[in-house]
Design a protein around this nucleic acid. Structure first.
Lengths: 364, 364
DNA sequence: CTGTTAGCGCCTTCAA
DNA sequence: TTGAAGGCGCTAACAG
């Protein structure tokens, strides 16, 4: 008793009701009552934007601590019509490349005082659509989407209304979205050129499917490099599984003109090919040289450290997030989205035939 | 004109205001007005819990589609005092193990109609604390936390109040939290036993620091296995970097009684050791056998496919999320949390000296 | 089966 | 510098 604010309990409060009724989180007016001020004063104290007298501030501060008051972000978001959260939709979280991008996004978001709502589409366009809906219902202030690749995307500008969206890693037809990509084509062009430089004439390309944007773009780089060198293409699409890859590779290697070098267009294909080569008893780079698109943890530990094109995953995430926050801040949706294409690097190790003991980086 | 509901526009509506005023997302009452019903009818139609006449339902349905109405989850959450979202705090998203766990958590969450708010602590206890605060302000209905390991944790039951929390992978002192772990000790015991079975007498242990729960637990498994075999320990803590690891390993390998086998207690140590051995010109398993805790993508591609203990990352995530949702549903916070310890598997490849061409799984 | 009222916690607006 | 009123969109509780 005798506490500051004692006399300010509203008359209509039931006798048993103390400052912090059990089982209910303290609200701003609880704090206000305890501090003997109006709720608005507490609000202003919290926002810091409007001056509050020192004396009052102290009382409010004490009340907040006493009640362990935490502002209700839900109410804030509801009231303010903005949630201060962004959504991220990616195919899989366990893909190291996606995870790294996402990590960068969350870091930027934190820097802007934003929360990140995350979900996975499992590469399914329907799931992706549903999750986008879900995020919009949650009134995220913006979205970063790494679109699922199978079937036709269902993401359109009209779905998102005035909510900014940044499309990531794989473009979608709608021109109005901001998009962040990497140099898929010139990267693979560079690395195939490197293989050509080693004197290879028969360089095989392996990939999952030409219907995938990134894979196709990488294929085009390979094609261009081969054409420029006056060499004949040797292409296999269909690295669905270890078995398919092995079968395809075995057939080619047993042919009269087997490839002397192989270029794999993503990590999975690289893995499959390495296993297949091991299975076939072929040494890298002695029997076949190997180079791949996309670096991965452990690429330096393989029997022959891999030469690869490295994508700037962190940078991609950062750029995408910054682009998004710019849009959120500006509040305007462009008719034509910004397209950013980030450079990649070639990491020269030994699988291509180079002799370096340590990796060499080359911008591509 | 003549449209159903035309006559129901409230008189007080300004003349220019049509059903969907530009630049404002449609609300439930917009829908209600257009359908010529009360807002509650729309609410009930949406919830599906209370019957609505077929005729009315149709009108509401049409109005919803016409306005492209989307329920405002923010308002729902605010109103209902629950956000239908859970929070996940992990050290790094780009750690494949963490990412895989998180993926499983998001999958379970989606199954329950929940959203996932995710953030990273960067292994910093202060960041972790702040982020936990932040999530609580967002009124998440529950949290899964993979605690940062350095310094003392600042997470306590009182911080979270009545919000359920599941602690993950690394326990913290507070007994009241539900916790999901794996068999760190018995897993490493098993794999060291396996090395002993190969006839090794001098088996070295390498790890980052004994102050880390998981590393210490794995060390204890090593210690027990060595004691049981009557062998002498050979331990190095301090695999901070490639250099430190190389230095320590080099010294031991040049000694009069060099280890004939090495057990590494996490992926990073494994990587460092592999690089170091390569650098020292030692072959695996010819010169030194190697076995590690924690499997990783590509472990089968290394010059000598690695024998490892595999943690059930997906399963861990699933179990943790399910535990959390049980608590959320029940709504009661236990005095003493449930402790779940999941089994691990030994994946026998060739780095230990086994001759299998394909991996062999052994429960540990 | 349907409508009305009230209020969740906060902050904008207005008044003192 | 401070307070009071009102309403964001939704739904529980209570009529009808």
């Amino acid at each position: 008793m005798g506490e500051i604010g004692d006399g300010h309990i509203r008359a209509k409060a039931k006798p048993k009701e103390r400052f912090q009724p059990i089982n209910r989180k303290p609200t701003m007016s609880d704090v206000a009552r305890l501090a003997g001020v109006g709720a608005m004063t507490v609000s202003r104290f919290l926002s810091g934007a409007v001056p509050v007298s020192e004396e009052t501030a102290k009382r409010v501060q004490i009340a907040i601590e006493q009640l362990k008051y935490r502002p209700n972000e839900l109410a804030r978001a509801f009231r303010g019509q903005k949630s201060r959260s962004i959504g991220v939709i990616i195919p899989y979280l366990y893909d190291p490349f996606f995870a790294t991008c996402t990590h960068a996004i969350t870091t930027v978001a934190r820097g802007n005082g934003y929360s990140v709502l995350i979900t996975t589409s499992n590469e399914d366009t329907d799931t992706e659509f549903d999750e986008a809906e879900h995020m919009l219902q949650h009134h995220v202030d913006g979205l970063v989407v790494l679109p699922a690749r199978y079937r036709q995307t269902r993401l359109t500008r009209s779905l998102f209304g005035r909510t900014p969206v940044v499309i990531f890693d794989r473009p979608i037809p709608d021109e109005s979205f901001d998009t962040v990509l990497v140099q898929n084509t010139s990267g693979s062009h560079k690395i195939v050129e490197h293989l050509v430089g080693h004197g290879h004439k028969r360089i095989m390309f392996l990939g999952l499917s030409r219907s995938l944007f990134t894979i196709n773009a990488r294929f085009l780089g390979y094609r261009r490099a081969m054409q420029e060198a006056g060499l004949q293409e040797d292409v296999f699409f269909g690295c669905q599984s270890q078995e398919d890859t092995l079968k395809a590779l075995e057939e080619r290697m047993r042919s009269s003109k087997p490839p002397t070098a192989v270029f794999t267009s993503n990590t999975l294909a690289t893995r499959y090919v390495m296993n297949a080569l091991y299975h076939l008893g072929l040494r890298i780079p002695g029997d076949v040289a190997l180079a791949g698109f996309d670096d991965f943890d452990g690429a330096e530990l393989t029997s022959s450290p891999l030469t690869v094109i490295r994508q700037p995953a962190q940078e991609m995430g950062r750029v995408a997030a910054n682009l998004l926050f710019e849009r959120i801040t500006r509040g305007e949706i462009p008719r034509t989205g910004t397209k950013v294409t980030l450079p990649v690097e070639m990491v020269i190790r030994r699988s291509c035939g180079c002799k370096h003991r340590t990796p060499v980086l080359v911008s591509a």
